[in-house]
Design a protein around this nucleic acid. Structure first.
Lengths: 333, 333
DNA sequence: CTGAAAGCGCTTACAG
DNA sequence: CTGAAAGCGCTTACAG
């Protein structure tokens, strides 16, 4: 392995001079030495040891991307796109992304410390431990989709509440008065809760309050679904707070012989790439995942560059994308 | 920051004794010291510096996961699932995964060296530089889906050729005699080329050779598609060597007013999660991505544990999953 | 513009 | 079972 020392010896200078060239501090080295050293570096294929650099400077140029959950987290296209974009931009900034799956927040601290990690991006539901995570790790942290009550937090999210409202208003506009909410995690995930709140609130405002039995914590079993869609006051439309839920729901309805949107309408959330290809193509609330990633990484590097930068909580807008999974009941008559 | 030295001072022992406890070499330390040191470690929240460890032992416990392409590579669900699973299992083995996007193979060497990376998994088309990558990096390397001619290579792939054959035989069985292949990269990607070869070969065997104009390098424009599906000898079925291509193709056909499968059949490859939810649900060649990831990581750690382990090239099987995107022409009559 | 010295926090290799 | 010494490959901080 080629080291600074080797290059220094061959060039007949001290390691400090070589170190300066490697680090681009050209104003501190004579022109002739720069040339000579650069050519030796090139010739010998010198690659700086980042462990050594990290140890002596206490800066690793590593960013942790922390994903709540297990391997299945990346099968969710929303996370995949986000993580992919974030990691790419980290690399683009000449840092290295490390991917961590975490369930226990204590693991996080351990991992961040062990590598002198310089910053971290969090995806997932860390809300309840957020204050502790911040207290334990005095490095720039950026959260995505957090609804923690902690004020001093740098977060990028979307207007989930508005998304819920948009879905409700659209369904009502299309003549749906008895609707249901189908999606998990509303107890734990602030995101889902907000989408539900916005949905529920708009429905109330329009005079069609959401009853408790129409809030389903997950895509329901056939029995439950059947009862909902058939009774005397059948549900005519569903809001799924994620396109993947919408997809599963459509599959489930299909199994019961209920066609979407003829017999039953469905509206999703996210506008993942497959939404335009499903059957029927999915009417959904669109969010800009790439933009989210972009902003998260920008914020992170701003804070790395300026540790005194103020906490920022950025909320991106959402919009409804009309496709064909919602039936217009007015036209139907 | 708490160091070995701090713990040693508090325990009244040398750093070596603490180091042994931290590394679990309990047989070399007295029971009483183990207890005492462990409690101090716990109390002070000591976390070993992996940079320091890495520097002195030349082993980083980092595995690089190298993805060919740019950020969009992770939007492809196949890659997302694979990367997610691989990274998770790396972490499970007490290593840290670093994600690299690479286009130039020279970058790879640089990055691997700079962190004393202990092993790497490659996804994507590195075939033409594979020999050089192996020569430059004397650490365990596992490739996924490689079709390099290099013999000494540890690779996990699937029987792409057979997948192509299965698709061809199935289409013929359903009465499709004039079919087309629609998917990019067959010039560069061994995977796509093999799927095409298998497809083409089976068609020839059955007496329905694939003509050149029926091999499309990407989902074609409307004009081209129209001509194919209408002429005197219209194409009645398409084989897309990836579900995402199949999805796009269905969208494109839909735009031309051609319904799948009534007017035109489509068969995909991969069996990604959305395949059962598309419209129509997708008949496709299934591969086991999780298994692929599992085997890749197992092989990698076997080679890390035993540098003399022989190169292994593992080929997983594929099977056809019948859904509803292919029409049976016999029934139609 | 240049370099000698000390140190980052560990491990290796040895001696006892 | 324990520890003193040297070293991993850099950077920081200083002196000139």
């Amino acid at each position: 392995m080629v080291t600074l020392k080797d290059i220094a010896a061959e060039a007949g200078v001290s390691v400090m001079t070589v170190s300066r060239v490697v680090n681009g501090q050209f104003s501190k080295v004579s022109e002739s030495n720069i040339k000579k050293i650069q050519s030796i570096i090139e010739k010998r294929g010198y690659v700086p040891s980042l462990s050594a650099r990290s140890l002596s400077s206490h800066a690793s140029r590593i960013i942790a991307v922390i994903l709540q959950g297990d391997a299945s987290a990346m099968e969710y296209p929303y996370n995949a796109v986000l993580v992919g974009q974030i990691c790419y931009m980290i690399q683009d900034n000449n840092y290295s992304p490390m991917l961590y799956y975490a369930n226990d927040y204590k693991d996080i601290t351990r991992r961040l410390r062990s590598w002198y990690v310089e910053g971290a991006v969090f995806l997932g539901m860390f809300d309840s431990n957020l204050r502790q995570i911040q207290a334990d790790n005095q490095i720039p942290l950026v959260f995505i989709d957090s609804y923690s009550s902690v004020r001093q937090i740098t977060n990028v999210g979307i207007d989930d509440y508005k998304g819920g409202e948009l879905a409700a208003r659209y369904l009502i506009e299309k003549g749906h008065h008895r609707v249901a909410f189908v999606g998990g995690y509303s107890q734990v995930s602030g995101v889902v809760r907000q989408r539900l709140n916005g949905f529920r609130h708009a429905l109330e405002q329009e005079g069609f309050p959401l009853t408790e039995e129409c809030i389903l914590s997950d895509v329901p079993e056939a029995e439950v679904l059947k009862k909902l869609c058939h009774g005397s006051e059948p549900v005519t439309a569903f809001f799924a707070p994620a396109d993947v839920n919408a997809l599963q729901l459509i599959g489930q309805l299909d199994g019961l012989g209920l066609r979407v949107p003829e017999d039953c309408s469905v509206i999703g959330f996210d506008d993942l790439f497959f939404a335009q290809y499903t059957s029927p193509s999915l009417t959904t609330i669109r969010q800009d995942i790439h933009r989210k990633a972009q902003i998260a990484v920008d914020l992170l590097f701003r804070h790395i560059g300026d540790p005194g930068a103020p906490a920022e909580n950025i909320t991106l807008d959402v919009q409804l994308v009309e496709r064909s999974s919602v039936c217009d009941l007015h036209e139907k008559r």
